[in-house]
Simulated scan of single mutants.
Amino acid sequence: MIYLTMLVCFITSILITPLVKKLAFKIGATDKPNQRKVHEKIMPRLGGLAIYISFVIGFLIWGPNDLHAMPILIGGTIIIITGILDDMMELSAKVKFGGQLLAALVVVFYGGIQLEFITLPFGGQLNFGFLDIPITIIWIVGITNAINLIDGLDGLAAGVSSIALITISAMAMFMGDVFVAALGAILLASTLGFLIYNFHPAKIFMGDTGAMFLGFMISVLSLLGFKGVTVISLIIPVIILGVPISDTFFAIIRRIVHKQPISAPDKSHLHHCLLKLGFTHRQTVLIIYAIAAFFALVAVIFSQAKIWGAFFLIAVLLILIEIFAEKIGLVGKNHKPLLKFMRGLIYVKEER
C-alpha cells in the first residue's frame, strides 16, 4: 500500500508543479535577481505548494492511525500558509518566526512531541524538566530555518532534504517505526517529483513555502524517529542533517567574527564558497549531495557503533568538518585556526 501511495505522490507532484508555476506568476510569488542571488531572470518560487499538495494526497490515501498524524499535518499547513505569504510579499523575519513558532507549538502541545530526557551512555538519565518544551521548539524552528538557509541553488534544498528523508525513513523502518518510515517515504516521493523541475537549470524554485515545509517535517520526523532517546540516538539526526546544521553554525560564527548581525544575509554559505572556488552550478549541487550522503552514511555507522567508537567517530567527523570549512573559507579567507595549528606542529617537528 505504501509503495502505491508513494507512486501516486510522485506522479501527482510531477503533474501539479507546472500548474503551481503558472499560479506563482499569477499571484506574484516570484524571485527577482539581485546581488545575493545566482539566477539572472525572474523565477516562480511557490514550488513547495506542489510538494505539500502531493504529500497531503498521499497522507489521505494512506490514512495513518496515529495520534501524531493530525498535529503534524496542521503544523505543516501553518508553515505552508506562512511560506506562501512570504513568497508573495516577503514577510518580516518576526512574522515568519511567528508562523514557525505556532506550527511548533501545535506539534508540541497538541501532538505531544517533546524531548523530555536523554539516557546517558554510562548509566542514568538527564531529565530536561521545564526545558523540554523550549528545547523541542528550538530544534523544530532551528531545522526549519537551516533547510531554508541552504536553499540557494537549483535543486539543493530538495536534494539534501531527500537524502535526509531516505536516511530517516530507512532507519525508522529498521527500528520498526512504521509511522515515521511511511510519512518520510510519502514526503520523499512528493519531493522527488518536484525535483525534476527544480534541478539545474530550474524551471521553478521551491521558495520559503517548500524550504520551510521540508525543514519543519524533517525536524518533526527526526524527533519521532529517534525518540528512544539516548545521547547516541539524539546525535543521529544531527549527523543526518549535517549539511544544513553545519552551514548554519558556520554562518553564525562568520557573522560574529565579522561583527555582523546574526540574521544578516551574505554570500558566504557553503554553496557560495564552492562557486567561488570555480565549480559550476551543477557541480556545486552534486558535491553538496555527496557531502549529505557522506553524513547519512556516518549516521548509519554511528547508530551501530559502541560507546567509545561513537565518541571517536564524532571527534573525527568534527575535525574533518572544521578542516573542510577552513579550506573553502566558510568563516573567512583568513580564519583558519586548525590549519594554522597543524602547520605549526609540522614546522616544530621539522625544526627538531
Results as ranks from 00 to 15, higher is better:
residue 191 T to Q: 06
residue 247 D to Y: 10
residue 290 A to W: 05
residue 28 G to K: 06
residue 244 P to D: 09
residue 109 F to W: 14
residue 335 H to K: 11
residue 329 G to R: 13
residue 231 V to W: 13
residue 30 T to I: 15
residue 296 A to N: 09
residue 168 I to F: 05
residue 47 G to D: 13
residue 115 L to Q: 07
residue 149 L to W: 10
residue 101 L to V: 03
residue 318 L to H: 05
residue 263 S to Q: 13
residue 235 I to S: 06
residue 296 A to W: 06
residue 92 S to H: 05
residue 340 K to H: 14
residue 136 T to G: 02
residue 169 S to W: 06
residue 42 I to A: 01
residue 148 N to C: 02
residue 109 F to R: 04
residue 352 R to M: 11
residue 280 T to W: 03
residue 306 K to P: 01
residue 290 A to D: 07
residue 99 G to C: 03
residue 313 L to P: 09
residue 48 G to M: 10
residue 268 S to N: 15
residue 106 V to C: 00
residue 217 M to F: 15
residue 205 F to R: 09
residue 325 A to C: 08
residue 156 L to Y: 05
residue 217 M to N: 15
residue 40 E to M: 05
residue 59 F to R: 04
residue 91 L to C: 09
residue 250 F to R: 13
residue 231 V to E: 12
residue 55 F to G: 01
residue 222 S to V: 05
residue 309 G to Q: 13
residue 163 I to C: 02
residue 46 L to R: 09
residue 185 A to Y: 12
residue 346 I to Y: 07
residue 68 H to C: 03
residue 250 F to P: 06
residue 180 V to D: 08
residue 286 L to I: 15
residue 92 S to D: 11
residue 74 I to R: 03
residue 282 R to S: 14
residue 315 A to N: 11
residue 106 V to D: 00
residue 142 G to V: 07
residue 48 G to W: 12
residue 147 I to C: 10
residue 301 I to L: 15
residue 15 L to D: 12
residue 262 I to T: 05
residue 233 S to G: 02
residue 87 D to Q: 07
residue 78 I to E: 00
residue 326 E to Y: 08
residue 60 L to D: 00
residue 281 H to L: 10
residue 160 V to Q: 00
residue 261 P to E: 07
residue 118 I to L: 10
residue 59 F to G: 03
residue 93 A to C: 01
residue 282 R to Q: 14
residue 14 I to T: 03
residue 121 P to G: 01
residue 92 S to M: 01
residue 282 R to N: 12
residue 320 L to W: 07
residue 7 L to Q: 00
residue 102 L to T: 15
residue 348 V to F: 13
residue 19 L to I: 09
residue 334 N to C: 01
residue 342 M to C: 11
residue 155 G to T: 10
residue 330 L to H: 06
residue 23 L to G: 09
residue 33 P to A: 08
residue 317 L to C: 09
residue 304 Q to G: 02
residue 6 M to E: 10
residue 275 L to E: 07
residue 141 V to D: 01
residue 178 V to G: 00
residue 329 G to W: 11
residue 183 L to R: 00
residue 196 I to M: 09
residue 295 F to R: 10
residue 160 V to H: 00
residue 199 F to S: 04
residue 327 K to S: 10
residue 84 I to K: 06
residue 83 G to D: 06
residue 99 G to L: 02
residue 113 I to V: 11
residue 24 A to C: 05
residue 4 L to E: 08
residue 69 A to F: 08
residue 61 I to D: 02
residue 215 G to W: 05
residue 306 K to H: 12
residue 65 N to Q: 13
residue 109 F to C: 01
residue 271 H to C: 02
residue 267 K to G: 08
residue 245 I to D: 13
residue 295 F to A: 12
residue 120 L to E: 09
residue 199 F to W: 11
residue 280 T to Q: 04
residue 321 I to F: 09
residue 145 N to S: 06
residue 277 L to Q: 14
residue 262 I to C: 04
residue 108 V to Y: 05
residue 178 V to E: 15
residue 136 T to V: 04
residue 242 G to S: 11
residue 86 D to Q: 04
residue 7 L to D: 01
residue 273 C to R: 15
residue 273 C to P: 02
residue 230 T to C: 06
residue 251 A to P: 13
residue 181 A to F: 02
residue 35 Q to W: 04
residue 207 G to L: 03
residue 107 V to K: 08
residue 17 T to M: 06
residue 79 I to C: 00
residue 311 F to N: 10
residue 6 M to L: 04
residue 235 I to F: 13
residue 223 L to Q: 08
